[in-house]
Amino acid sequence: MSKKKALSIIIIIWFCGSIFSFPTLLYSKTLSYRYAKEEVRTLCIMIWPDGSAGNSESDNIYNILFLLLTYVVPIISMVFTYSLIARVLWGNKGIGESTEYQKESIRSKRKIVRMLMVVVAIFAICWLPYHLYFLLTYKFPEVVHFPFIQHIYLGIYWLAMSNSMYNWMIYCWMNKRFRNYFKQYLFCCFAKKELNQFSSLQRNGFYTNNTRSPTTRYDLMQMSGNYNGNNSNVTTILMKRSSLSMSARETRT
């Protein structure tokens, strides 16, 4: 897929999502209610032309369409496509003797399919209670008056919103390459912070005496060069950084 085609698909997805969310912007209102002990709360609810949310047929139709377009259709399409991929990867025995490289490639692709299926399962688990809640409250309006229903709804809402939070955890757990790059990124961020701290101390003159040594100047050049060019020497950089920090403390005392 070309970059132009991928960008077009992304724009279409965002446009469709914006159009589908437009009724929320159009019909959402803020209302203030006075509760017991003179407590006033302001709520944001959707008020459709034929009634408020939970009592409106338009709201029920919108919730059903929202369920189909953002939950049922994506899950069915992903399960269908991943099942076809799995069928090819697990069912294709090949002709003749496979090389070790081919076997390793197939095993790697199988792991990716497993990972994607777990992502789909987590998505289904997180969003199902959210969709069922609105369908249930329309069919049985008395549910909204149950004890602790607000706490239950908040739990359901947080579960749905937290879905994307679990994706990187799944990638780290089931994808070795992603896990290695993620560790490398965190380590590089830590190394950059250490290097910035060292530069700040150097500008303040804490390393003046130490940097006169040709060996120390060489180490400093190596630190900058290794960090900018090769991330594999981060451990060496940090060890040198610790050594220089100890020398700085001795100089100050």
Rank of each mutant, 00 (worst) to 15 (best):
K111I: 09
I122H: 00
A121S: 12
L116G: 07
L132I: 12
K111Y: 06
P147L: 05
I112C: 06
H131E: 07
E97G: 00
V143S: 06
V143E: 05
Q102I: 03
P129V: 02
E97R: 08
G96W: 06
P129Q: 01
W127T: 07
S108N: 14
P147Y: 08
V119Y: 02
E100P: 00
V120Q: 05
Y101T: 11
A124R: 05
E104G: 04
Y133Q: 01
L128F: 14
V119E: 09
R114M: 11
F146R: 09
K111S: 13
L116Y: 12
C126Y: 01
T99Y: 05
V144C: 03
K93S: 13
Y130C: 04
Y133L: 08
P141N: 08
L128N: 03
A121T: 13
W127G: 00
W127M: 08
P141K: 05
V120R: 03
P129T: 01
H145M: 09
F123P: 01
E100N: 10
V143F: 14
A124E: 08
I106C: 11
E104I: 04
P147D: 09
Y130E: 14
L128Y: 06
P129Y: 02
F134C: 07
V120H: 06
I149H: 09
P141W: 09
H131K: 06
H145Y: 13
G96L: 04
